[in-house]
């Protein structure tokens, strides 16, 4: 049982690393992340990279939907904008990969600002429809602006490099992903305890009251859109560089739903939740793939059932979590932690 854990000042209460105990476990976890690429197989590293991209995008979406309460059904479109920006900068203008990442984020943020403008007039349901429309509009642009995006053929992207070192394999790319994930999660975790983060939460809880206590809705809603899209753009740029190719097929509507599923399953309004959700939703199809391999071996001909199974399971997660555990995995994690912390005197 952990004891002596009480706070005397607000600064302590707001601290990111709450106690020595937390620091210790986080440190241990970080060591694990550093050792992981040396022991894991290429497949595991591939999955780890995918989880990393998902985390970055999901944290972004959670800042917008979970913290600010502005539902977005077009997150995949912003991921796409970032991906294309980076790809075009690298292949056409000869930018280095490293420089193209912030630009991808910025262009994406700009797109987010434009889509965010209706959020000043419309909200809830209407905003959800507006972002859904933007998803289809961007998809259309990716396919039809052929002079820029190469249409459905897509763009091939060279691997990033430092000096003579190429980040070609999953193992090498893992370091890039890890770096951006730590940066992104750290920034988000800090953001939510600043003035801006608290303004976001105020807007989510009641926008009119927020305006009355002096929060500029215009500024903070648009900031939320911009920051969220920035995350999406960076995630997109990393993702397609990792895949070495970008096509419009990478950013379908179902991907937006997947990101939404991540933050719902993980926990709306929780940075930790976005991470849980991203891990969970990324691992599910991998697990299904594995199952389908097993089925193929023992009952050939039935493995096709696993193709749509992925979607059904995403949908089920969304529905079940919304009905039974609206605060997501983060809440479950919290309960488990509390159980052990208070055990055996849990009253």
């Amino acid at each position: 049982m952990r004891c002596g854990d009480f706070k005397e000042t607000y600064i302590e209460d707001e601290a990111i690393f709450q106690s020595l105990f937390v620091k210790f476990w986080l440190g241990l976890f970080f060591v694990f992340l550093l050792v992981f690429p040396f022991v894991a197989s290429a497949y595991l590293l591939y999955v780890a990279n995918m989880i990393g991209f998902a985390i970055i995008a999901a944290v972004g979406l959670n800042l917008l939907t979970g913290f600010t309460g502005q539902i977005s059904l077009g997150h995949a479109a912003f991921v796409g904008v970032g991906a294309y920006t980076s790809a075009i900068l690298v292949t056409r203008l000869g930018f280095s990969f490293w420089l193209s990442i912030p630009f991808a984020g910025l262009v994406s943020a700009l797109a987010g600002l434009v889509i965010g403008i209706p959020s000043l007039r419309v909200k809830g349901l209407y905003l959800c429809i507006a972002t859904l429309a933007s998803q289809f509009i961007f998809e259309f642009i990716f396919i039809h602006w052929e002079s820029m995006t190469n249409g459905i053929t897509g763009i091939h992207i060279p691997p990033p490099r430092i000096g003579g070192f190429e980040f070609l394999t999953e193992r090498n790319f893992y370091w890039i992903t890890l770096f951006f994930v730590v940066l992104g999660v750290g920034y988000a975790r800090n953001l939510v305890r600043t003035r801006m983060g608290r303004a976001f939460v105020a807007i989510r809880d009641r926008d009119l009251s927020a305006e009355i206590i002096g929060i500029n809705l215009f500024r903070y809603k648009l900031s939320a859109f911009a920051i969220s899209s920035f995350y999406a753009g960076v995630a997109g740029a990393l993702w397609v560089t990792f895949l070495k190719v970008v096509t419009p097929d990478h950013f379908p509507f179902i991907l937006s739903i997947q990101y939404l599923a991540m933050i719902i399953v993980g926990g709306l309004g929780s940075v930790l939740g976005s991470i849980f959700g991203a891990v969970f939703i990324t691992l599910t199809p991998e697990l299904l793939n594995y199952l389908s391999e097993v089925v193929k071996e023992y009952a050939p001909g039935h493995e096709e059932i696993f193709v749509p199974m992925k979607e059904v399971i995403f949908g089920l997660f969304i529905v079940l979590f919304l009905i039974f555990e609206p605060r997501g995995l983060a809440e479950i994690w919290h309960r488990i932690k509390n159980f052990f912390r208070l055990w055996p005197f849990s009253y």
């Binding site: 539902i71 809830g124 599923a261 193709v307 749509p308 979607e311 059904v312 949908g315 969304i318």
Partner: peptide, 19 residues
């Protein structure tokens, strides 16, 4: 927002089942 998202989830489930 929950009600909207639940219908999205429902749509995905139905689509998968039809598939």
């Amino acid at each position: 927002i929950s009600a909207i998202m639940v219908t999205i989830g429902l749509g995905v489930i139905l689509k998968g089942l039809i598939y």
